[in-house]
Amino acid sequence: MNTKYLPGILAMAGVVVASNILVQFLFGQWLTWGAFTYPLAFLVTDIMNRVYGVAAARRVVFIGFLVGIGCSLIGTQIVGEYGPLVTLRIAVGSGIAFLTAQLLDVAIFDRLRQGSWWQAPVLSSVIGSSVDTALFFTIAFSGTLAWIEPVNDVSWAGEMLPLLGLGPVAPLWVSLAVADWGVKLAIALVALIPFRIVTRKLMAQVA
């Protein structure tokens, strides 16, 4: 393995592990602390893509995916107040969402890399984040997919409540998804600052 990719690999692994831990702790009514660390995975992928190219970015994504699987396997063995910390639906949803969204991010970034410096990271992260949120929350909590894990009762997620406490009535999991999506979009914009700084520094080194 090329050692120049090691910082990106370690950063992705760190983000995945931290997010799997912090998702257990609530932040307000609609979010967990993991919602603020997980979007950094897109930042890591985009930096690798800009500096080292598509192949390097995909390699980091696949390693992050494997780390995520490891975290899920560990989580299934830890029993909390309401059962295992990670259920089958959460593990499947997390894995599919991560791999699909990150590879989509890589592909979109590559198509846009010749545009203005901010276009590729913003658009790839926004689209990837949107797909990630839609896939994860639908697979993990939608009542229509209860067949994935019939013994796992997620009826609580289907409770009909005002969207984010203010909008039209919708299942609770939709409010959770919208809140999560909003954080991802905000971080995608804020991440432009470290993206610009880090890529400039690394590209100067590899030039």
Rank of each mutant, 00 (worst) to 15 (best):
Q119E: 14
W117F: 15
W118C: 03
R111C: 12
T87F: 00
L104D: 03
V106E: 03
L99D: 03
S116W: 14
F109Q: 06
I90Y: 07
D110I: 06
I108G: 00
A91C: 02
T87H: 02
L112I: 02
Q114T: 15
V106F: 02
D110W: 08
S94D: 12
L112M: 08
S94E: 10
L103A: 01
T87L: 01
G95K: 08
Q119A: 15
F98A: 09
I90K: 09
D110Y: 10
L104F: 10
V92P: 08
W117N: 12
Q102M: 13
S116D: 15
T87Y: 01
V106H: 01
V106N: 02
T100S: 12
S116K: 15
R113M: 08
R113S: 10
W117Y: 14
S116E: 15
A101W: 04
A107T: 13
A101V: 06
L99H: 04
T87E: 04
I90S: 09
A91V: 00
A107M: 13
S94V: 01
L103F: 06
I96M: 08
I90F: 09
R113K: 14
A107Q: 14
S94Q: 12
V106K: 00
L99F: 08
R111K: 14
Q102F: 09
S116L: 15
L88T: 11
T100A: 08
S116V: 15
R89A: 01
W117S: 14
S116M: 15
R113W: 02
G95I: 01
A91W: 00
V86M: 08
V92G: 05
W118M: 08
F109C: 04
I108K: 02
R113G: 07
S94K: 06
F98Y: 14
L88F: 13
I96S: 02
A107V: 11
I96W: 03
G95S: 12
A91M: 01
W118L: 05
L99S: 05
S94T: 11
V92N: 06
S94M: 11
G115H: 15
A97W: 05
I108Y: 00
W117C: 12
A101N: 06
F109L: 05
G93W: 00
Q102C: 09
V106W: 00
Q119H: 13
R89F: 00
T87P: 08
D105W: 02
L88A: 11
L103S: 10
Q114P: 01
V106D: 01
R113E: 10
R111I: 10
D105T: 09
F109G: 05
I90T: 09
I96V: 12
F109Y: 12
A97C: 09
I96G: 01
Q102P: 02
F98R: 07
T100C: 11
R113I: 09
R89N: 07
G93N: 03
A97Y: 04
Q102D: 08
V86S: 01
A107F: 13
A101Y: 07
V92H: 06
R89E: 04
T100H: 05
G95C: 11
W118P: 07
A107I: 11
